[in-house]
Nucleic acid binder design. Sequence first.
DNA 1: ATAGGGTTAG
Length: 755
Amino acid sequence: MGLGSCFRIYANNVYLVSVTNYRITTTTPFHPRCRPSCSLFHSTISNGTPPPGTLHALSVKNGSFQTLNSANHLLSLYVKSYNMGHAQKLFDEIPHKNTHTWTILISGFARAGSSEMVFNLFRGMQAKGACPNQYTLSSVFKCCSFDNNLQLGKGVHAWMLRNGVDVDVVLGNSVLDVYLKCKAFQYAERLFELMDEKDVVSWNIMIGAYLRVGDVEKSLDMFRKLPCKDVVSWNTIVDGLMQCGCERRALEQLYSMVEYGIGFSAVTFSIALILASSLSVVELGRQLHGMVLKRGFDSDGFTRSSLVEMYCKCGRMDKASIILRDVPLDFRRKGDVGVTSKEPEAGIVSWGSMVSGYVWNGKYEDGIKAFRLMVRELVVVDIRTVTTVISACANAGILDFGRHIHAYVQKIGHRIDAYVGSSLIDMYSKCGSLDDAWMIFRQVNKPNVILWTSMISGCSLQGQGRQAISLFEEMLNQGIMPNEVTFLGVLNACSHAGLLDEGCRYFRMMKDAYCINPGVEHCTSMVDLYGRAGCLTETKNFIFENGLSHLTSVWKSFLSSCRLHKNVEIGKWVSDMLLQVAPSDPGAYVLLSNMCASNHRWNEAARVRSLMHQRGVKKQPGQSWIQLKDQIHTFVMGDRSHHQDKEIYSYLDTLIGRLKEIGYSLDAKLVMQDVEEEQGELLISHHSEKIAVVFGIINTTNGIPIRIIKNLRICTDCHNFIKYASQLLDREIIVRDIRRYHHFKHGSCSCEDYW
DNA sequence: ATAGGGTTAG
């Protein structure tokens, strides 16, 4: 993790520490009593340290920075306070480096996850004839594990054996971990057998590795054979089972822990709380909360964060905020925090969880408020939390908040890595701003599959099918291995762009060349592809050949294709199938009645509606929302609750009049097609998306695109209305509905009227 | 100095 500018609190003073071009600056001078000396470097860490940069400057000035020993101490001080930029600079200045000098810097970069730096330094070290010690090797192996660099790991392991390096159990475990993280199970198993000294950590590493690849039986077997389990062994098995989707078995193991009297650690609580929220057992969560309080684990930041997250996921924001109330933002001043402790991060995580929690629960304003508070209070927001929040913004479609966070990431000087990059690309493309997504995509250094996939899916989402495909081809050319998600993006792109042949080719490629079994989503996408191309017979064959006839999504897609191609005969048959599979799905009835209506079969349409009514199937009410400044404005059909309602409706009526002059018409038959409620022209003209659009027009200046999010699919009339409005007012209007994006510009839509 | 908590795409 790179470190840019950040705020650090030393002895109740806030320092802005910025590291740019290896130069360190602080806004507030440190305490004048401090005089740099070797011993001071150590003692100051624990009791309110002035930034080491200042110490460095002073020590150079008054000549106390002379011996290699003191240089190494200073180096380690930089490393411990995460100032790797300055550490590197100092390192370069040290003329005669010893093993210790190299090791300090290497371990620092290893902790920061900068594998490339570690590998380069390690090579440099060997070239200069400095002999790596066990600490050095351990750091290198850690990076090999992190980077899946099997080649280097194997090389260093061989070098160790050749040079007769004394391998103790810790170093042996590091090597074992490399082989397992790289999924080199044969090597690992052989090494495990040959290790003359094995401890419980070695076993835990093995058990964890089998769980990561989903080999539940093997890991459970080893777990049972393990003679002296520690709490980590138990944590590993509970968490691993949960990750493998065996939540019930995880819960059983958790209960066994209690039975055997194994004391829970903070990690156990974290895992257990997540388990409780994924099983939606609020009661278990509450019990755990009680235990946490009883055992005093509520001072642990990670545990608190899990508590907050658990309550957030259960929708209990009240409970979550109570926990957070006891975690003040100035938690770092409480004196229980050392520079090297994980605690500051953990406190931040609690707040980050709260921000995400608000967003998950649709309380965007509160989320934004909490985030602002964090920033205002000069808290360093943990980058992992940031990615979570960005992804929450993506799913909630709130571009402004997303942009704020993007700006924040830039401000703190964090490099946009694959994690942040993917979530930003996703956010921008889901919020309808593909240009920004491209900008992010181009600036990421080492793109991985996920990054490529985000961009491919983004293009596909925005209807840029061809673009998505050429991106995919480029990815293959660069030797990046696509996975099932990538193929899903590509297939969706083909289906949106109507590229039948290409879609079929990629589907075969996925199965034959990459041995990926098509999942439900892939098959639905294929059904969509065939259906949209008008190959209704092929669609039907595909469904039966692939045994998909039990899937609601497949029949729904088929039915909308029938509607598109106005094939009522097949459509009726499809809707029979659909109603058999999903008799209580409101979408089935709506689609069917729409299809009948658009073919002027009014009686049948009415029959479908009354059937729906009889069976007590309720349609989801339509809702649209738009963000202006910090506020999210939500509208339902015929909404009168907004304080600007008079203005909105009079503008809407005028606008409809003007649009009619350029060709828009409120067609009576469209009234019946509607996905929301459908009774007469008045109601259709007051659909939530129309209200939201008008509200946006009134409250923004010309030239600013209007972004609307809708919880259902957009109806034909609103689609028409917005097309004409974009032409008349020369405005870009972007509507994200439940299925896809509609990018209206100059009177046409990016979906080319298919959705 | 080794293992376990939560980060990105659908």
